[in-house]
């Protein structure tokens, strides 16, 4: 068991480190890639005992329900999280889906705080 506050502070440090060291346009991809790496590994661990998913919809259900609640517990309602920096969770989703065989682009937008909408565009190879 690790603590949520500890994770939030770590995330804050990661974001502040990247913004101090890298160019602004490079920070987001780096942060997104870190999320990707983490999401990829988490999906590997969370699915090791599950049966094969039927289809994309099945995978998406898994991501929205089991994966998300396991990672962030019920809701992402962290008051301390700066909502500008959603690159990490975007990468997390992209990494998890990549692990399950879905290649996609994930973007996030915040219209009404604290809700956040993640948009997942699946890329199908022709």
């Amino acid at each position: 068991m690790a603590d949520e506050a500890l994770f939030e502070f770590l995330h804050m440090e990661v974001v502040s480190y990247l913004f101090k060291t890298a160019d602004e346009e490079k920070c987001i991809p780096i942060l997104e890639n870190m999320g990707y790496r983490v999401g990829h590994s988490l999906a590997e661990r969370f699915t090791k005992d599950s049966s094969r998913f039927k289809d994309e919809l099945d995978i998406m259900k898994f991501i929205c329900k089991d994966f998300w609640t396991s990672v962030y517990k019920k809701q992402v309602d962290n008051l301390r999280t700066n909502h500008q920096y959603l690159a990490f969770p975007c990468g997390l989703i992209r990494g998890a889906l990549a692990n399950l065989g879905i290649s996609c682009i994930v973007t996030a937008e915040v219209q009404n705080m604290p809700a956040c909408k993640f948009q997942i565009m699946i890329q199908r190879s022709q």
């Binding site: 690790a2 603590d3 500890l6 770590l10 990661v14 999320g35 790496r37 661990r45 990490f88």
Partner: peptide, 26 residues
């Protein structure tokens, strides 16, 4: 959801993995 509700001691094992892996990525 009140802030306290997320602060129980139950089932936080998973965020340990999130934390561990994020730290590794850092």
């Amino acid at each position: 959801m009140s802030r306290q509700a997320g602060r129980g001691t139950e089932a936080k094992k998973v965020s340990a993995e999130l934390f561990t892996l994020t730290y590794g990525a850092l």
